[in-house]
Design a protein around this nucleic acid. Structure first.
Lengths: 114, 114
DNA sequence: CCGATACTGAAGTACATACTTCCCTATCAG
DNA sequence: CTGATAGGGAAGTATGTACTTCAGTATCGG
C-alpha cells in the first residue's frame, strides 16, 4: 500500500476536479471565500439567473466544496475547506511518484551509463 | 500583492481542473506516473480507441500536464509535473483566505457574540 | 518492395452541462 | 391581508465533450 490515493472518505476527486473546472463555480467560491452569502447575493454580480447559481451550488455541494443552510427564506452558503483535501492529497501522492521516478532516472543515468 | 492567484505563467487553472475532471485522463496520468509511454501503450489497458487516447493527450498537453515527442513513428508521452503547480497554488491561496476568515470568525464569536 | 505498425485527420453520434424561461411556494415588511 | 423578496421545480435549448468509425500518411521489419 504505497499509493494512498483513495483516501479522505467519500468525496471522489473526479467530482471535485470537475466542479472546479467551471469558471463560474470558481467565481462563486471566490466570493464565498470572503464569507457566507445568500444565493441571490451570489447571483448579483455574476450576471446569470438565480436558478443557474442554485444549480452550480448543487454541484459544489455534491463535490463537498460548499455547504448551505436555509434559515428563513434565505439560503446561506458557505465554503467547505475540507472538500479540497482530497484534491491536494491526490496531487501530492502523484507528485511523489514522479519525483521518485525522476530521482531513479538520475541514478540510472549515473550508474548504468554506457 | 497578496493574492498571487494569477501566477505560474500561462496555464489557466480552468483548463487543468477540467482536464483532471475526466477519469480516463486521470488514468492516463496514473500510467504516465510510472514512466513514459507510447500512445498505443496507453490505449491498450484503457479499452478505448487509439484516437480517443490521442484526443485526451491533446487535452492534457493543452493543460500543461503532459508533453509528447514523436521520434520515429512512435509518439512518446511524459507527465509534466510543473503543470500541477498552478492548481496547488490556487488551492493554497484560497485556503489561506478561508482560514483567515475562520480565525476572524472565532474572534467575532468571542467578542461580538449575540 | 510490402505488409504490419503507429499514429493522424475529418466527420458523426450520444450524452453531459450550462444555461434559460415559466410557474409555484414560502416568508418577511407594511 | 397584500405585495415584494428569496428561492425551488420542471422542462427546453444550445453548446461541449467523449467517444466512435473510416479513411489516410509515415515508418519499421524482413
Amino acid at each position: 500500500m504505497q499509493t494512498a490515493i483513495a483516501k479522505q472518505g467519500r468525496g471522489d476527486v473526479g467530482r471535485v476536479f470537475q466542479a472546479l473546472g467551471d469558471p463560474t463555480r470558481r467565481a462563486i467560491l471566490d466570493r464565498l471565500s470572503e464569507g457566507p452569502r445568500s444565493v441571490s447575493g451570489l447571483a448579483g454580480p455574476l450576471d446569470i439567473t438565480l436558478t443557474a447559481v442554485a444549480q452550480h451550488l448543487a454541484v459544489l455541494q455534491a463535490a463537498g466544496l460548499a455547504t448551505t443552510e436555509k434559515v428563513g427564506r434565505v439560503r446561506t452558503c458557505r465554503i467547505e475547506p475540507a472538500g479540497f483535501n482530497a484534491v491536494e492529497q491526490w496531487i501530492a501522492d502523484h507528485r511523489s511518484l514522479w519525483t521518485r521516478r525522476l530521482d531513479r532516472l538520475g541514478e540510472l543515468l549515473a550508474e548504468d551509463d554506457t
